[in-house]
């Protein structure tokens, strides 16, 4: 995964609340066995409206979305993160995110930045005309108008994003700890260890 340190550029002033993953990528796009090409289906239903923000020429290729509360709720489909990535989005700023979506976004190198509604209101205004800048190392969001908002991020996620680390590889390095747990469980709670190996 490519390291993520800064995201800078135009931001779609989206603002909608409770954006579910069916809105981000409808179910009929999930029949793929690849991670690519989903940008075309991103926000498909909203894009039928000719005034939609995603097709305004000034935002073509914008790397940031500014959204409302509870972004990414609903289905666990990682296709939502892949669709955003495919349309060039590298960060979403919103008051809050669904737990599953923020995990999926993180695993694909998309920053989810949670800021209070007042900050979102201001960024929605700025995004109409000017770029926004996110600095992961200093955990700040800034605008050309001296606005400066700081955000919180899980230190482990920050480290992984900044270094572009592969989480599966990191975990597999902990093989001895995992094997130790398995040995303990097989002794103390053997019924969990059998799974489909057990048959009536």
């Amino acid at each position: 995964m490519d390291p993520v340190r800064e995201v800078e550029g135009r931001a779609y002033p989206f603002g909608l609340k409770n954006v579910d993953t069916d809105i981000i990528i409808p179910a009929h796009w999930l029949k793929t066995i690849s991670r690519e090409g989903l940008g075309e289906g991103a926000f498909e239903a909203l894009r039928k409206d000719e005034n939609n923000v995603f097709d305004r020429p000034e935002f073509a290729g914008a790397p940031i979305i500014v959204a409302g509360d509870n972004f990414g709720c609903g289905s666990s489909r990682e296709h939502a993160a892949w669709a955003l990535l495919d349309m060039g989005v590298k960060a979403v700023i919103a008051p809050s995110f669904s737990d599953i979506f923020s995990g999926n976004a993180f695993k694909n190198g998309i920053l989810t930045v949670a800021l209070p509604q007042e900050a979102i209101d201001r960024l929605m205004e700025v995004a109409e005309t000017d770029p926004i800048s996110i600095d992961l190392e200093n955990q700040t969001v800034t605008t050309p108008f001296q606005d400066r908002f700081t955000f919180e991020i899980d230190p482990f996620r920050k480290h992984c994003l900044m270094e572009g680390l592969d989480e599966v590889g990191l975990t597999l390095e902990r093989d001895s700890a995992i094997a130790g747990y398995e040995a303990r469980q097989t002794g103390e709670m053997p019924w969990y260890a059998k799974g489909t190996a057990l048959s009536a």
Binding site: S75, S76, R77, E78, A81, D99, I100, G103, N104, K107, N108, D154, F156, E167, V168, T171, L172, R174, I178, E182
Partner: peptide
């Protein structure tokens, strides 16, 4: 609980997940 596809891969490979307590 539900997980994304990267986590599906993580579970298949390691039978674990990296999580923060809810």
């Amino acid at each position: 609980f539900g997980i994304g596809t990267s986590e599906v891969e993580h579970v298949l490979a390691s039978q674990t997940l990296l999580l923060t307590q809810s």
